[in-house]
């Protein structure tokens, strides 16, 4: 959380201090943004095979995202932001896991086809003259 505020910088702190009175009515914009980012990552993971390849990571990401939204709704800005950050990286890991499994499968299939092709090529090549 300290880090989050350090990113904003002192100017942001000053503005936040001024707007404390008015900011209470809605979710924190920073948390909102992190939640939006996490949501996008979860959706991308869902569409890229993560439900099959990395169901646990994806479920964790969804759970954290839901909790982040809940916390944000309850104006618990800090937990909301932390949970959203975690949900985002969890979803990315889930997506990357699916992608990695696809690549591995493709590589194995390719290796097999190459092996078959080499054997075929050896068989059909004419004897050295």
């Amino acid at each position: 959380m300290d880090r989050i505020f350090s990113r904003l910088g002192k100017t942001a702190l000053a503005i936040a201090a001024i707007s404390v009175g008015t900011a209470a009515y809605a979710g924190n914009p920073l948390a909102d943004e992190k939640i939006a980012v996490a949501k996008a990552s979860v959706e991308r993971a869902e569409q890229s095979g993560a439900p099959q390849a990395a169901p646990v990571e994806l479920a964790t990401a969804r759970d954290k995202l839901a909790r982040a939204e809940k916390a944000n709704a309850a104006h618990e800005v800090k937990p909301a932001a932390l949970l959203a950050e975690q949900a985002d990286i969890d979803a990315q890991v889930a997506e990357a896991t699916a992608q990695q499994q696809r690549a591995k499968k493709a590589a194995i299939e390719f290796d097999m086809s190459m092996q078959a092709l080499r054997q075929e090529s050896l068989r059909s090549s004419p004897p050295a003259q």
Binding site: V93, A96, A103, K104
Partner: peptide
Amino acid sequence: LKATAKADD
């Protein structure tokens, strides 16, 4: 994960 996938690709 990304590196492994890209290496395979």
